Measured scan of single mutants.
Amino acid sequence: TDVTFHVNGRNLHLKGADEELLRRIEELIRRGADIEELEKAVKEWEK
């Protein structure tokens, strides 16, 4: 799945995201995470 999140005026584009990653990103956004936290979560998922 390709999806782009718009967070605090910045874009986080995910290519090939699975349901697990999407749920994790949505949860972080609900908690008020900043873009750096979201990018870190994506990097951890990519490993």
Rank of each mutant, 00 (worst) to 15 (best):
E46W: 09
D2N: 06
E37K: 07
R30D: 11
K47C: 09
A17G: 05
R31W: 13
E44R: 07
A41G: 04
E20N: 14
G16C: 05
G32P: 01
T1M: 14
T1A: 12
R30Y: 11
I35D: 03
N8I: 01
T1G: 09
E19H: 12
L21V: 09
R23P: 01
T1W: 14
G9E: 05
E19T: 13
R10T: 15
N8P: 01
V3A: 07
D2C: 06
H13S: 07
D2F: 05
G32Q: 04
N8S: 05
E37L: 09
L12C: 02
E46A: 12
V3G: 02
K43Q: 14
V42M: 06
T1C: 06
E26I: 14
D18S: 15
L14T: 01
G16M: 07
E19Q: 13
E20M: 13
I29N: 01
E26D: 07
L12V: 04
V7S: 02
E20H: 12
N8A: 06
L38V: 05
K47I: 13
W45P: 03
F5P: 01
K40M: 13
A41M: 08
V7D: 03
D34V: 08
L28Q: 05
R23C: 06
N8W: 02
E20C: 10
K40L: 14
F5S: 01
H6G: 03
A33K: 10
N8H: 05
D34E: 12
E20R: 07
V42D: 00
H6E: 14
G9T: 02
K40A: 14
L21S: 03
D34Q: 08
A33V: 08
E36Q: 07
E46L: 10
R31A: 14
D2Q: 04
E46S: 11
K47E: 13
G32A: 03
V7L: 05
L28H: 04
R23Q: 10
E44Q: 10
G16Y: 08
L21P: 00
A17T: 04
D18H: 10
A41F: 15
E39W: 09
I35W: 12
I25S: 00
E26R: 14
D2S: 06
V7M: 03
K15Y: 09
R30H: 11
I25Y: 00
L21E: 01
L21C: 05
N11S: 14
E39G: 05
E27K: 10
R31K: 12
E39K: 07
K47N: 12
E27S: 12
A41P: 00
G32V: 03
N11V: 15
R31I: 10
R30E: 10
T4F: 06
E37S: 07
E46N: 13
D34I: 08
I35V: 05
I35T: 02
L38R: 00
G32D: 04
T1H: 14
D18R: 04
E37I: 11
